[in-house]
């Protein structure tokens, strides 16, 4: 059940799921999960192409391989819940229902971008969808997410905040300042660790004294759980538990999603830290979209033709976004002086 490829000696303590909980999804939900994951993947494939064509400036961090996490997480949330994440955020935005055109055009730095070409790949926002960014400094968004949860509690709502971060960010000091405050004040925040095994090129085992990241909250009395992040149903089940925990006023929870990114850290990754075989094996055996595809076909919920049709439709959506992102004009030079101060 473990998605890790590093030698992962389980400590056997904490709250690791003994048998993985899996969400009981209806056929309609399964199809929606599939489509949402497909959109993330096709979007990212197109973004990768456009980067290769020189249309995308700055950096570009693709989410391919991790789709089950953002789709499973988002499906467990309701209106008014808040999501905040780091720089690998295109997937989260697709899952949150943000307009692919606005996201792609932000990658190309155009005026039609969701930050009008001023934010770039790491700084995109969509308040209407509860998406609070897109942040470039590793780990610094974790305390912001804690503040979002504070506001939810202060305003006496039952909303939760999800603060995503990666295995690399899990070693930033500020994460632990946030853990302490969140538990001290019982804030409704889910610390969602996307452990894709590598902080750029440094594996978890080479960077972390405790590699079971879900246990990082133990000394703050924050319960944690390790989840198969390649299985959207496992992600959803864990989220349901965490969301219920938060909405019930029991304070924060940590979910460690064991996941894997197929592509490099960014588009300019020499990939000397892992073998091609490792990546191939993961793709062949653990791919989140393929797993769900098998489930859908085996369960007789759909057929090849329908899935092909869906893929066509998703690709068209992405192609539209790419066309928009190519044609949208660059921001006016006058934008240099807007939005600095009110």
């Amino acid at each position: 059940m473990n998605a890790s490829t590093s030698s992962n000696k389980s400590a056997g303590r904490g709250r690791r799921a003994s048998k993985p909980a899996v969400y009981e999804a209806s056929p309609e939900e399964l199809l929606k999960f599939y489509r949402d994951m497909l959109l993330v993947r096709r979007f990212e494939e197109k973004a990768g192409q456009m980067y290769g064509m020189g249309l995308i400036g700055g950096f570009c961090h693709l989410y391919i391989g991790q789709e089950a996490v953002c789709v499973g997480v988002q499906s467990a949330l309701k209106d008014g819940d808040a999501v905040i994440t780091g720089y690998r955020e295109h997937g989260h935005m697709m899952a949150a229902g943000c307009d692919p055109k606005g996201v792609m055009a932000e990658l190309t730095g155009r005026s039609g971008g969701c930050s009008r070409g001023k934010g770039g790949s790491m700084h995109m926002f969509d308040p209407a969808k509860g998406f609070y960014g897109g942040h470039g400094i590793v780990g610094a968004q974790v305390s912001l997410g804690t503040g979002l949860a504070f506001a939810a509690k202060y305003k006496k709502t039952d909303n939760v905040a999800v603060a995503y971060f990666g295995d690399g960010a899990a070693n930033q000091g500020q994460v632990y300042e946030s853990f302490n405050m969140a538990r001290l004040w019982n804030l409704p925040v889910i610390y969602l660790i996307e452990n894709n095994q590598y902080a750029m090129g440094t594996s978890v085992a080479r960077a972390s004294s405790e590699i079971e990241l879900y246990r990082r909250g133990e000394s703050f009395k924050i319960p944690g759980k390790q989840v198969d992040g390649m299985n959207v149903l496992a992600v959803r089940a864990a989220m349901d538990e965490a969301v219920a925990h938060c909405r019930a006023g029991k304070g924060p929870m940590i979910l460690e999603m064991k996941t894997y990114r197929y592509r490099g850290h960014s588009m300019s990754d020499p990939a000397k830290y892992r073998t091609k075989d490792e990546v191939q094996k993961m793709r062949a055996e653990r791919d989140p979209i393929e797993q769900l595809r098998e489930l859908l076909l085996d369960g007789g919920h759909t057929d090849e033709a329908a899935l092909k049709e869906m893929d066509k439709e998703v690709k068209a959506l992405v192609a539209d976004a790419a066309a928009f992102a190519t044609e949208s004009p660059e921001p006016d030079a006058a934008e240099l002086y807007t939005d600095v101060l009110a």
Partner: peptide, 9 residues
């Protein structure tokens, strides 16, 4: 950091 999150919300 927490204050930034509060202000965002």
């Amino acid at each position: 950091g927490v204050s930034v999150g509060m202000a965002l919300a």
